[in-house]
Design a protein around this nucleic acid. Sequence first.
DNA 1: CCAGGCCCCTGACAAATGTCACGGTCGGGA
DNA 2: TCCCGACCGTGACATTTGTCAGGGGCCTGG
Lengths: 210, 210
Amino acid sequence: MSGDSPPIRLLLADDQALVRGALAALLSLEEDLSVVAEVGRGDEVVAAARRSNPDVALLDVEMPGLDGIAAAAALRTALPTCRVLVVTTFGRPGYLRRAMEAGASGFVVKDTPARQLADAVRRVHAGLRVVDPALAAETLAAGVSPLTDRETEVLRTARGGGTVADLAGALHLSEGTVRNHLSAAIGKTGARNRAEAIRVAEQNGWLLGE
Amino acid sequence: MSGDSPPIRLLLADDQALVRGALAALLSLEEDLSVVAEVGRGDEVVAAARRSNPDVALLDVEMPGLDGIAAAAALRTALPTCRVLVVTTFGRPGYLRRAMEAGASGFVVKDTPARQLADAVRRVHAGLRVVDPALAAETLAAGVSPLTDRETEVLRTARGGGTVADLAGALHLSEGTVRNHLSAAIGKTGARNRAEAIRVAEQNGWLLGE
DNA sequence: CCAGGCCCCTGACAAATGTCACGGTCGGGA
DNA sequence: TCCCGACCGTGACATTTGTCAGGGGCCTGG
């Protein structure tokens, strides 16, 4: 923090241009931080990082092209020295878990006061981990997704809201199989509906990833 | 814009503290703008505005307590001189329509480049209207909600994802009536499902307000 | 006054959905 | 090796959902 060390180089990834720019403005107020790249899609993160060589990347989870978790994983392998701080709207347990598994160093929800963001960045840059304690507890409580791969896939496809026949067609499965998977998912989520099951799974962040 | 006129006083309302603070930072970079109040709930807008007497209020639509549209209406009656600029994540046709009906002067989606925000604020302050042309066209095309009050209410309640019996209980209606309203809504939205109907109505912004 | 719209209810029906029991394949442990 | 679990499928079944045709009450505008 003594004035003459080079500033921390930041990459910002968020699909909403306005908040992206606003975050850039916010972070640029800090003397020791410098925004060196901004992207609006997950699949542009690695390329931009290669060009600009940031110290810390702030990634949103909900992004077109590639979600922030996957982008974090890709970034970690491409530039292992670059730390990742996930900044997201939704504090879903599964998001946090998967972000950490993907190699993120920090996880911040957009509810947190603006002043804490710069500190989070500095902490992450210093090699520390930044996680909201309450969310961490919730994550432990929620546990890993009980859904099998196929069930997850079926549920994710069902999100669009089609009939069983549609799902069967889209997934190249029999209607009966689709119904079985859905039934299993409904049971495991404790829901009474397909719709409820989708909501539960979504809130827990179980519908992400491949 | 000649340097010595007093700055435009701004009120910011957004439930996500981080973006709220970030927007404040972004707008504070402009010489002629000054953020005089920040709130995180719709039902705090009027009180904060009374205290700080802003020239322009930037309101998010999705907020706890009171949605941004309703807050805009309340603000317009409480402080008619204060202009309203709605800043929202979703460019839903119904949102724009209702924002305008509520007396908003401008409507900006969070996808727009950050640099345009300050200009939008200045335009609104100058008495002009600010609307994304593409979204305006879409709004005209989408038209007013075809749903009757009751249908809207049933659909909004059904969003939570319960069985017909649940809805009937929550709304103090007969199950048959609920089914009839749902059926009508499904027909009017062109959907094939309850779930699809909800999605369509939500995307068009037909599920807001009372 | 009457027509028309919205609201509420009933009852019956077809279609979609959810559940269950069952068999079979395949791969990875014990 | 054998067993277990995930996976795919079938078929039958109960339940829920969506549709339709009615009926009445209430209000509003012509």
